Simulated assay, not measured.
Amino acid sequence: MQRKERLRQMVAAIVGQGGVEVETLAKLFSVSAATVRRDLEVLEKQRLVTRTRGGATTHASFNDLPLSYKTEQDTLEKRHIAREALKFLADARVIGTTGGTTVSEFARLLMDRDGLTIVTNALNVATFLVANPRLRVFSAGGEVRSSSQETVGPTAESFMAGYNIDVAFIGVDGVDAAAGCTNYDPVGARVNAVLREQARVSVVLADASKIGRVALAQVCKMSDVDVLVTDSRASEIALASIRAQGCQVLTV
């Protein structure tokens, strides 16, 4: 296993359990304790974990994995979700997007499009799509979240509120029938909420790992979402509860 992948999985293990011992990580990744300690030092410098005596815990300021760590998770499923979402472009002239890895995969599929206007608060999406001169790209200002490369705050909210969107493609951290769509960052959740409110149709793109998860701040109720596109690994019980809220669910 390459170090980059080991670091990604190590962060996921520590976040998932809240804290892990060095010896446990050494056995999990079949490396020496010295190698684990060096890896933890790297992750601590990135403010993802805090080293403790004999192990590591989630860093106090941590609320989400950086985009670079999430990009390689469930890549195939995210690409399938992105392709399924293309069907909602049929009559759209103006679309809005948030950031996130699944939405970013969707954005990559727009490079061969003509005459489409994209409104986004994701810097990576805007930077990628502006290379196509046949697209019009409008990018929100505001504070930039380093973990997701999205702009957030009052400036981004006001920007989003100024556009009439045909279809919004929204990435979230959690999707639950009772809690709705949620994000770890309350400020980012508000920007997503404004984008959804400005759209005639809202499409949430979320892989199966997000289904049933509840993050800190609500973006919207499930009844406010028109379509959820996810993958076939998601719990059918959870999806049935989401459908009961009036949200169309597509699985790939």
Rank of each mutant, 00 (worst) to 15 (best):
M1N: 11
M1C: 08
I14M: 01
Q17H: 13
Q17I: 03
G18M: 05
V20D: 01
V20Y: 03
V22D: 05
T24P: 00
T24R: 00
K27D: 00
V36N: 00
R37I: 04
K45I: 12
Q46H: 08
T52D: 07
A56P: 01
T57W: 09
T57M: 08
T58G: 05
D64P: 00
D64K: 01
L65F: 15
L67V: 14
Q73T: 11
D74C: 14
T75I: 06
T75A: 12
L76W: 13
L76Y: 12
R79P: 02
H80D: 12
I81D: 07
A82C: 06
A85C: 07
L86A: 05
R93V: 09
V94M: 10
G96T: 01
T101D: 04
T101P: 01
L110G: 04
G115Q: 07
N121R: 03
A126V: 13
V130A: 09
P133Y: 12
L135Q: 06
G142M: 10
E143R: 15
R145Q: 09
A156R: 00
S158T: 09
F159Y: 05
I165C: 08
G171N: 02
D176Y: 07
T182E: 06
P186G: 09
V187S: 07
R190E: 15
R196W: 14
A199N: 02
A208C: 10
R213E: 15
K221P: 03
S223Q: 12
V229H: 04
V229G: 04
D231V: 05
A240R: 15
A240S: 13
S241F: 12
Q248F: 15
Q248G: 13
L250A: 05
T251N: 13
